[in-house]
């Protein structure tokens, strides 16, 4: 693509990025200003990941990048280069069996409107994997990056507790 700028060959205005999204290889031609959030939603049509603020202040867009939870809104899509991206759509078993955290959210009614829920769940899966679900206060703290305006926090706490216990019991 033409650059039209005078920085020389070092700089590109369009960037080719290869990555996997939910295990599927994806090749993207990106404007380097595009966010991972807008790319998964508008280009890959994986709309389970939500835009709640677009400023890193709510957690609704939480996805996993190489196994770590990040905010897709503050992740330039070019940072997905050669990475594995996991969104809420890729969390359940391929046979449709919900992930234990998803099941726990259903069991504990850990949601109301559901808009923050994909981000909460992606965050909770990582929280348990990180070893940050040891007790109630730790769960609350390590999920505080995910706002829930409906106020489902008691249910979310119970769900993560349930899923962490299930994970620990293997």
């Amino acid at each position: 693509m033409s650059t039209g700028i005078k920085h020389g060959a070092l700089f590109a205005t369009t960037v080719e990025v290869a990555c996997t999204v939910n295990g599927r290889p994806v090749l993207l031609l990106l404007d380097p200003r595009e966010s991972l959030l807008d790319v998964v939603r508008e280009r890959l049509e994986l709309t389970g990941t939500k835009k709640g603020c677009d400023q890193g202040q709510c957690g609704a867009c939480t996805v996993h990048l190489d196994g770590r939870r990040v905010l897709a809104c503050l992740t330039p899509a070019v940072h997905a280069r050669d990475a594995d991206v996991l969104t809420i759509e890729g969390l359940a078993d391929p046979d449709g069996t919900p992930h234990p955290v998803q099941q726990a959210f259903i069991d504990q009614d850990a949601l109301q409107c559901g808009y923050c829920t994909p981000g909460q769940i992606m965050s909770a899966v990582a929280c348990i994997a990180e070893g940050h679900a040891g007790d109630d206060d730790q769960i609350r703290e390590y999920l505080s990056g995910n706002l829930c305006r409906c106020g489902a926090y008691p249910g979310i706490l119970a769900a993560v507790r349930q899923a962490a216990r299930a994970t620990a019991e293997g």
């Binding site: 959210f105 259903i106 769940i121």
Partner: peptide, 21 residues
Amino acid sequence: VPRVDAADKVTGRTRYSADHC
């Protein structure tokens, strides 16, 4: 009776307005 739309909400299947394209 569990929330009947919970399964869709926890999997990202629920379509909110902005999810239409």
